[in-house]
């Protein structure tokens, strides 16, 4: 295998692995649910993206034809990550999950919850 392809694939692999790890580290260590939500939605998405780019380059080089179907998974994750984040955040708001004390703007959270319940009554 040519040296520079190996370098590119290895760089993407390490980068992706580090970002996936940072996402899970954030999930484990951050103080409350809402802050924890940030790490997996962002860091893990980028990590997966770069792992899939590495796979695409590798398969393209090995099989000799342009392999783009990894792009499908990347696109799918990019589209679905914000949707799942929104759903989980909505669930947590509705369940009145504990918000850490130094959070500012708690009235906004209360408002958001109220809008939701008023929507429930009208529905």
């Amino acid at each position: 295998m040519e040296f520079w392809i190996e370098v590119v694939v290895s760089a993407f692999l390490i980068f992706g692995g580090v970002f996936v790890f940072i996402g899970s580290l954030g999930l484990a260590k951050l103080p409350d649910f809402y802050t924890r939500l940030h790490a997996p939605t962002k860091a893990t998405t980028l990590g997966m993206g770069s792992l899939l780019v590495a796979s695409s380059v590798m398969i393209t080089y090995q099989q000799g034809y342009l392999s783009l179907h990894e792009l499908l998974i990347t696109l799918f994750l990019l589209i679905t990550a914000p949707v799942t984040a929104h759903m989980i955040a909505k669930t947590a708001l509705h369940h009145k999950l504990h918000i850490i004390d130094r959070t500012t703007g708690k009235t906004s959270a209360k408002n958001a919850r109220k809008r939701e319940s008023s929507e429930e009554h009208s529905a």
Binding site: Y34, L37, H38, T41, K42, T45, L78, I79, A81, P82, V83, A85, H86, A89, K90, L93, S108, A109, N111, A112, R113, R115, E116, S118, E119, S122
Partner: peptide, 24 residues
């Protein structure tokens, strides 16, 4: 979705009259 994917923000709820987006 854009707000969720970009700088340190996650959208949590849209108000019923669609005038406010609640963001963490």
């Amino acid at each position: 979705s854009t707000v969720s994917l970009t700088p340190g923000t996650v959208s949590a709820e849209v108000s019923e009259d669609k005038n406010w987006l609640y963001v963490h």
